[in-house]
């Protein structure tokens, strides 16, 4: 299945295109396309509607999760950075 994704214009957050044409933060609310022609047609509409989201493109999904060659990238986009940031305890951080 294919889904259209982009980044939201005002804050850059990852969004997916719902059947209504609205953009949603939830992948499960995204419109899924089994047919490539229909997916490309919807992508053209999304590209024309550039007011709310930036750089729409198609991704592969399987059972509601990213799949295919870009699975790592799209999983990170969906779930956030896989690396911790800076939240270590003082003792752990100093490692003495």
């Amino acid at each position: 299945m294919m889904v259209i994704t982009a980044n939201r214009l005002n804050d850059g957050r990852v969004v997916y295109r719902a059947e209504s044409g609205a953009w949603t933060r939830a992948l499960e609310e995204a419109q899924r396309f089994a047919d490539e022609v229909a997916a490309c047609s919807a992508l053209k509409s999304a590209e024309a509607d550039a007011g709310a989201a930036v750089g729409p493109y198609l991704i592969e999904t399987d059972e509601g999760a990213p799949s295919g060659k870009k699975i790592v990238r799209e999983t990170i986009r969906l779930s956030g950075p896989s690396a911790g940031t800076t939240k270590l305890s003082v003792q752990d951080a100093n490692h003495v």
Binding site: R73, I76, P81, L88, V90, A93, N94, H95, V96
Partner: peptide
């Protein structure tokens, strides 16, 4: 520095790893 978690004694050592943000960002 110790009290704010910034006293790791590893400057120039193998654990002083340089890294770009990579695919996480």
């Amino acid at each position: 520095l110790f009290d704010i978690g910034l006293a790791t004694p590893n400057a120039g050592e193998a654990t002083d790893i340089v890294s770009c943000p990579g695919l996480d960002y």
